[in-house]
Design a binder for these strands. Structure first.
Lengths: 260, 260
DNA sequence: CGCTCATTTGATTGTTATCAAAAGAAGTGG
DNA sequence: CCACTTCTTTTGATAACAATCAAATGAGCG
């Protein structure tokens, strides 16, 4: 049982795996060279993750724990826009707040940022990988839109769990069917855009139907195939190309073209 | 009454205005030099917008009409992820389909794409503007997530209309309170993640309360202040910084930090 | 234990989707 | 100009889904 709060994987290795998931290969030396093991920070659960004061726009690499980009409305409604896992890069964002959902450890990404701004050809592969990773993030955000806009509660939760499993899989923090997601149901409900109570009932349904198991912050996908179908889940990763996953058909003709 | 389907604004000018909205200034000569007036295409409503076959990943600049990035689920549910207006750049996207919602005209962005890939310092401002515009797009997508995840039907619609007004305003296609949005309610309902019927009733409420007016594809924001408050709308554009718009408070403490 | 926080349950309300159908608008061809 | 078709908007009735309220149970911790 691998824990997301404490695993043995080094920062550079995590980033490399994440890049590999987008089918962009970056030289390990180059990654090592980013000095991701020097200044590290820890954030307690519930705390906002921000750069040390004074330092302008920088980056951090999340190495352990779970963080979230959260948006709060005036009346207290909350929406988590994006979950961040080990291997993800944390960038300050104006309209959202970055919150540590569990204890979080980060590595300083100042040098990474510098290399990305550096136009020299030596860092070309790094920049490419960066762009590819950004594209994946965007695709994930788009999935989030579809989940919230058009999916029922069960679908949202199933889809989300599949996504988390796959994302953690890319950095090697899963087994075939299980992963560690030590979040409260309240937090998950803020990802899924549901009330806590309804999320709870939805999870019970998924459990009852033998689709997922939940114990001590560990999630088991008991019937992945059925989950995938239920949520019409399709991977956002280019590598995982698989015709049978083409479940969201490419828009036959959303708005009727008038007959000629 | 300015029409989104036919206005006199040239492609380069549109792009310049769009960039200006992100507070990045690009030399008009550089924009003219993009040759945005050469090959132009037209797409009929309902039709998929794609590059001419054979040509690899390219770009198009939308000059007239409205397009949408649409995701369709197997059972026919649809979600529009993003509306595209004049001045927006259309890039092919794997998991989504780009559909013309009205008659759409585009300019060829091949040279733009080339300049963006060209690392020479001459195109530095252009690249900066591009990145800034991308950031705005991402912010808009995030707003969409919050709308769908945590807002009620009226809020969603109000928020969306304010957003459209502002976006069209950036390219000069609005008056103080009105803009042209010749979409069917079905299309709007796919943006807002609502059923057509419910969208219709929601619009009626907004009308009844004197908040918006709708006639012939033209929208009038009759009480902008109240709409902004209703939807807790905050602009995503850096220029429009305005303390009173800070309605989504910066996450006081989403998840209780345990008392010490 | 006794505290706090998280999960679970039950009862109820409110919102939104769905179904069915009427009324309105717009274009087509006679 | 009218009948005809097709699409869009609107209305009414009903059902499904999810939020809310209130309270009980469970889990972890000093």
């Amino acid at each position: 049982m691998i824990s997301i709060l404490k695993h043995g994987v080094m920062a550079a290795e995590l980033l490399g795996r994440k890049f590999a998931a987008t089918r962009t290969r970056v030289d390990p030396t180059c990654l090592q060279d980013l000095g991701l093991d020097s200044p590290r920070s820890t954030f307690e659960p519930g705390v906002e993750i921000r750069e040390a004061e004074g330092r302008a726009r920088s980056l951090q690499l999340l190495t352990e724990g779970v963080a979230a980009e959260v948006r709060c409305l005036v009346d207290g409604r909350r929406q988590i826009l994006f979950l961040r896992f080990p291997g993800d890069v944390l960038a300050p964002c104006d309209s959202e707040t970055l919150i540590a959902l569990t204890r979080v450890r980060t590595s300083d990404g100042a040098r990474l940022l510098a290399r990305l701004s550096d136009a020299s050809p030596a860092y070309q592969p790094l920049r490419r990988a960066w762009v590819a990773a950004g594209r994946v993030d965007q695709a994930l955000l788009r999935d989030q839109v579809v989940r919230l806009g058009r999916m029922s509660a069960v679908e949202r939760v199933a889809h989300m769990l599949l996504e988390v499993h796959e994302r953690l899989g890319q950095v090697g923090l899963v087994t075939e069917t299980t992963f560690h997601l030590p979040l409260t149901q309240e937090m998950v409900s803020d990802v899924a855009g549901l009330s806590v109570v309804h999320l709870n009932r939805t999870l019970q349904n998924l459990r009852r139907d033998g689709l997922v198991g939940l114990r001590q912050g560990y999630v088991t996908l008991r019937d992945r195939a059925r989950l995938v179908q239920l949520a019409s889940y399709a991977s956002v990763y280019p590598a995982a190309w698989n015709p049978s996953q083409r479940l969201t058909r490419p828009a036959p003709s959303p708005y009727l073209v008038m007959a000629s």
